[in-house]
């Protein structure tokens, strides 16, 4: 049976971890490769590198990071953050990443999704949506979700559910739903958002934003119908290990990939 995935997200800038946490005396806390290896060893099913480099050398820096990761970590990984052009996607995929994640650029130029899917296959193109709750009427439970871009600063007027459908029609093979309301709160994912989109499209949904602990992951992977749960701070700051999360999920009947020991010598 297909396992639900637990995905740590690493924020990187200029080839370094943005949140540099000391995790071992002899390791460089700022090195994303060291952190990626730690997550890999703990049983992460996949990794997301979110690159916030904003310099002219961004493309070279990302290319170098991708090549280094693919030489040392043998699980799938996705790269996102400022992916705008065909050339950006190409550097990520040809460097050895499985997927490129596209957010704001898809809103400005939706053809980038189509072009990416045609060149590299749908499985390589992730549509990333930042969504925020908006009242739909004066009824408190009547909400809709609006797509926001540029890190939540710009409202687009687009309905997130319709946008999700369009991204999939254009060829996105997976969607990441990042709830701006939940992001950073540790109060749990936006379950309703995930469920609504999961019921509307056939591609896997990765829930993002709001993870405070294993119970939040359980909720979004069961009730929220997400295929994967992404989290950053709870893993970075050692609040929970990936193994603890997986044990919690397995005890409640969620299929997860168990850790097995294999002798590679």
């Amino acid at each position: 049976m297909l396992a639900r995935r637990i995905i740590p997200c690493l924020d990187v800038k200029n080839g370094r971890n943005v949140r540099g946490v000391r995790f071992s005396a002899d390791k460089d806390a700022g090195d994303p490769i060291a952190l990626a290896r730690r997550y890999d060893a703990e049983g992460a099913d996949e990794l997301v590198f979110y690159d916030i480099t904003a310099s002219a050398e961004k493309r070279d820096i990302v290319g170098k990071l991708v090549r280094r990761v693919s030489e040392e970590v043998f699980i799938p990984f996705t790269v996102g953050g400022g992916v705008r052009t065909y050339q950006d996607i190409r550097i990520i995929i040809e460097g050895g990443a499985e997927k490129a994640s596209i957010n704001s650029a898809a809103v400005h130029t939706p053809e980038i999704i189509t072009q990416g899917a045609e060149s590299f296959g749908s499985q390589a193109i992730v549509g990333s949506i930042d969504a925020i709750r908006r009242p739909n009427s004066n009824q408190i439970e009547d909400v809709r979700w609006e797509v926001v871009i540029n890190g939540g600063r710009t409202y687009t007027g687009r309905d997130a559910l319709e946008w999700a459908e369009e991204l999939v029609d254009r060829g996105a093979g997976e969607l990441v739903l990042n709830s701006i309301d939940a992001d950073g709160t540790k109060d749990g994912y936006d379950i309703e958002l995930n469920r609504m989109v999961a019921e509307r499209v056939d591609v896997p949904i990765v829930a993002s934003g709001g993870a405070g602990g294993p119970e939040d992951m359980y909720a979004v992977l069961s009730e929220g119908k997400a295929s994967a749960a992404l989290a950053a701070s709870i893993f970075h700051y050692n609040q929970y290990s990936i193994a603890e999360v997986k044990t919690y999920l397995a005890e409640r009947g969620v299929p997860v990939r168990p850790k097995i020991e294999i002798d590679l010598t």
Binding site: A3, R4, Q123, S227, A228
Partner: peptide
């Protein structure tokens, strides 16, 4: 089933 199948399976 969701297609493509993406992820870890036994």
């Amino acid at each position: 089933q969701r297609v493509p199948q993406i992820g870890w399976n036994e």
